[in-house]
Simulated scan of single mutants.
Amino acid sequence: MKQYFAILVLFLLSLQLFQNSEADLQCSDVLKDLIPCVSYLTSNSGSPSTTCCNGVTTLASAASTTADRRAACSCIMNVVSKVKPNVEAAKALPGSCNTTLPFTVSPNMDCSKID
């Protein structure tokens, strides 16, 4: 009986691992990359720091699949609703860091429509 219980537990744990998400990119990764940008995005002045731009570049590289891009978008949208950044600064951030993101950060962004 113990053997069957152990097999059942292993089976359920393996299902949990595969059900978490299609995306390899986790919100904690997105936050780690973008935390250095918060002061720039909320101050409405100056230019982004080197650390901020390094994070934006890392995020742009990491968001390589549709699932990753949607996960990054959803995470960013959750943060945007709490931090209330300057919308123009958020839209301009990738360009200010000489990179591009596969989506535009805006309050009306629909993450489910990102390819």
Rank of each mutant, 00 (worst) to 15 (best):
A6P: 03
S45R: 15
A60M: 07
A71G: 06
D29K: 01
V79S: 12
L41G: 05
C27G: 05
N54S: 15
A67Y: 00
L59S: 01
M77N: 04
M109Y: 04
L25C: 01
K32M: 06
L41E: 04
C37H: 10
P94M: 11
A60W: 08
N54Q: 14
M1H: 13
T99M: 07
M77Y: 04
T42N: 08
N86K: 06
N108C: 08
S14W: 10
G55L: 02
I35A: 10
P48I: 04
L93E: 04
V56Q: 00
V87H: 04
D33T: 07
C52H: 00
G95I: 03
E88W: 08
S49H: 01
A71D: 02
D110Q: 10
V80T: 08
T51F: 02
V56W: 00
Q3P: 02
L8R: 07
I35W: 07
A72F: 00
P107F: 11
V80P: 04
S81M: 09
D68S: 09
Y4T: 11
V87S: 11
Q3A: 14
S74W: 01
V105N: 01
C37E: 06
S81G: 12
A89E: 03
K82M: 12
E88G: 07
C53K: 03
K91P: 02
T65F: 03
S106T: 13
V83M: 04
Q16P: 05
M77H: 06
A62H: 05
P107A: 15
A63I: 00
S47C: 05
Q19V: 12
L15A: 10
L12E: 11
F18D: 10
N86C: 09
L8D: 06
N54M: 09
A89D: 03
C73F: 05
T50Q: 14
L25S: 00
I76T: 03
K84V: 11
S81P: 03
C53M: 06
Q16G: 15
A67I: 03
T99Q: 06
S21N: 06
L15Q: 05
V9C: 13
I35G: 05
L15F: 13
V105L: 08
P36S: 04
G95W: 09
G95R: 08
A60C: 04
I76L: 10
